[in-house]
């Protein structure tokens, strides 16, 4: 074990994942090597079908059967655990449970007062203190996703996995929630792994951006983002990084024409 992996929370080495479809085998992920430090925010970008969600589901413990090594705090992942929380693209709130019961869904083995306190703290954290008695269908998309984040954080996981959590939100709500997740990250110091197809989002949030290629899913490039937060999406450095990542997806860059009269 070298120094880099020793300080890492999550270590992925030589990860392969195959799917059997109609008797044939499809390689979803091939030779993935990635070490994520404690407290780091890592974004993973790739086009749809590149296996980035599969990678996240393997880390979450929702996929079984992979070859290679995925270790968290030195232990090989073989199933879900409370050390990892996950937020999906759909909020997945249980429609008949109130907001507070949805958040308390993941809290088990606590006394009632203790549980209520933890739920209240987490609703405060995502800015939904006044909505504890609401049902999910009474919430907007952004609010639902906030509840989902609170639910995922309720057991204080060391690692929060975000699977395109803002993909279904409108542009303004999306930006709001991106700022919100940064604020939560800075407060809680949870290690974050975000999967997205939005390059801007990946750069805005991540300490590093992992660029994945399509079929089979491999890591093409890892781009460090050495920019101060809060980041300005139109700053020169931001745009340069965006260009660099863009170039990974569209080899033949379109030449922009500008006419000045």
């Amino acid at each position: 074990m070298n120094a880099a992996t020793a300080a890492s929370r999550l270590v992925i080495e030589g990860l392969n994942k195959n799917y059997k479809i109609n008797g044939g085998e499809i390689t979803a992920l091939q030779g993935i090597d990635l070490a994520i430090r404690e407290g780091e925010f890592v974004s993973i970008v790739g086009s749809s079908g590149c296996g980035k969600s599969t990678l996240l589901r393997i880390i979450a413990g929702l996929e079984n059967g992979y070859s290679g090594d995925v270790r968290i705090g030195g232990r090989r992942i073989s199933g879900p655990g409370l050390d990892r929380g996950m937020v999906f693209q759909e909020h997945r709130l249980i429609p008949w449970l109130t907001v507070e019961k949805n958040v308390a869904f993941g809290l088990n083995g606590l006394e009632n007062d203790k549980r209520d306190t933890v739920v209240r703290e987490h609703l405060d954290l995502v800015g939904l203190a006044g909505f504890s008695k609401a049902l999910p269908h009474q919430l907007s998309g952004g609010m639902s996703q906030r509840v989902a984040i609170a639910r995922a954080l309720v057991n204080n996981p060391q690692l929060l996995l975000l699977d395109e959590p803002f993909g279904a939100l409108d542009a303004l709500t999306k930006i709001q929630l991106q700022q919100e997740i940064l604020r939560i990250w800075e407060m809680e110091r949870t290690t974050m792994v975000l999967v997205t197809h939005d390059i801007d989002e990946a750069i805005y949030l991540g300490d590093r951006v992992v660029v994945m290629s399509n079929r089979p899913g491999t890591i093409k490039k890892i781009v460090p983002v050495h920019l101060q937060r809060p980041r300005d999406r139109s700053s020169y450095d931001f745009v340069q990084i965006r260009k660099e990542i863009f170039a990974e997806f569209f080899a033949e860059a379109e030449k922009p024409f500008a006419y000045a009269i």
Binding site: L82, I94, F105
Partner: peptide, 15 residues
């Protein structure tokens, strides 16, 4: 989808 959420949060079966 709810089954997955319950697995992630280690929700006891009766709950």
């Amino acid at each position: 989808k709810f089954v997955e959420v319950a697995r992630l949060l280690a929700v006891p079966r009766f709950k």
